[in-house]
Amino acid sequence: MKVPIISVKKIVAKYGENTVLKDVTVDIFPNEITVILGGSGCGKTTFIKNILQLYKPFSGSIKIFGEETVGLFPEEFNKILEKIGMLFQNGALLNSVNIFDNVSIPLEQHTVLPAEIIEKIIKVKLNLVNLGHVINLFPSELSGGMKKRAALARAIALDPEILFCDEPSAGLDPITSENLDNLILKLKEQLNMTIIIVTHELASIHRIANRIIFLDEGEVLFQGTLAEAKNCGIQEVEHFFEVGKFGD
């Protein structure tokens, strides 16, 4: 039996009095692409941010690489974060530095690799997302889609063991979106990455998802494979795939 790389047990997340996640229990397995689905405002992004401690959960347990992370000191959690990459919804590139420097940040901060090797890694990572030519440009000089791809290059700079992607395909054209999916598959296959993606794009889900977690009003309605999801007998989940099948 596979041991989960991330194990979330009964987490509750609140914004003030508003409970966003209610007793969410989820296992994420290594070398799989797990897609987190659900309607807007159902708590998908909060769920990811809870795992990454960008928001602290109100209660519950989160184990990453078998280690309990709730209550860890920031310095201890930072060691775990070094093995994790995150692609934010709007890229979150630093506007004050160019693309090369943006991608170099994790490499310079967390490795002792010489500049020559770092430069090669950056060029390769940017080339993988088809942005080899913008290495000297600043984020403000890039389109929304380019920013997102540059942010992905930064997220994979350290070849993380776990990669989180918050709506990676949103705002991208279908071709770029397909290329991004292919890259995500490549990362999973070649670097044994575990990838957790929040997305609504059904075409993308069909291409890459190994496992689906469906959230509704802060609760897990379903977790299992894509095929199981389509015939799970849960009305909300089946309806989600039914309504979106035009995009298949």
């Binding site: 090669k120 890694i121 390769v124 080339n127 030519h133 913008v134 290495i135 000297n136 490549k186």
Partner: peptide
């Protein structure tokens, strides 16, 4: 992995 991450065949020129 070597094929994906090799920089030897990158021909794209930076602006």
């Amino acid at each position: 992995t070597i094929k994906t991450f090799s920089s030897l065949e990158i021909t794209v020129e930076a602006i």
